[in-house]
Amino acid sequence: MGLRGQRAVTISNGHAVRFLVTSIGGSSVALPAHWVRGIVTPASAGPDGLVAWAGMQYERTDLAARLKIISGGLSHDTRLILYGNEEKARSFAVDKVLGLLDVERALICPLPPQFRGQERERLLGFFVDPSFVALIANPFWALELPLRPQALEIFAIRSSERSPSEAESIHLPAVAMDEALSMSTGPVS
């Protein structure tokens, strides 16, 4: 799955949520793409960990550690995700960016009730792709914002109203993603 192309899990007239799917420590971790502001290489971060990009500063957070996932460590595929909304912005490292995926709302499953711990705050649920099961990180938790119920609903887009050209205009910095992808073969300092 490439970043230049994006695909939908199903074609339907219902609501969908667009995710940026990443790999962290062998786990597929998805975040609502609506708050992705950019994807850069680790070299873009300053010595203090701050990333300055498009007039904004992104403070570093160790998402892998907060998710209690052991990261694969720095590699050529490591990327910093610049993530934010109007209130807060953070950057965090992922082992690899897998791409964008539109997932029909009905195919997004909550965590089963047998999961009873703090993971319910960190993870909103999961969805199943033929090649992986993606865990959905709670975007409010990722940005250390107050948690809210039914957090995914604000990210839902009506798939029947979306044409390919409209899809490109949603808040995703597609150009930045393309650049980040093209850098994937270059050295990481």
Binding site: S27, S28, L67, K68, C109, E119, F126, V128, V133
Partner: peptide, 19 residues
Amino acid sequence: TPVPSDTPLVTALVRYEES
């Protein structure tokens, strides 16, 4: 599929039918 979980002994998912 491992799930980073705080719930004792419940730390993964398995594919079953469509979910």
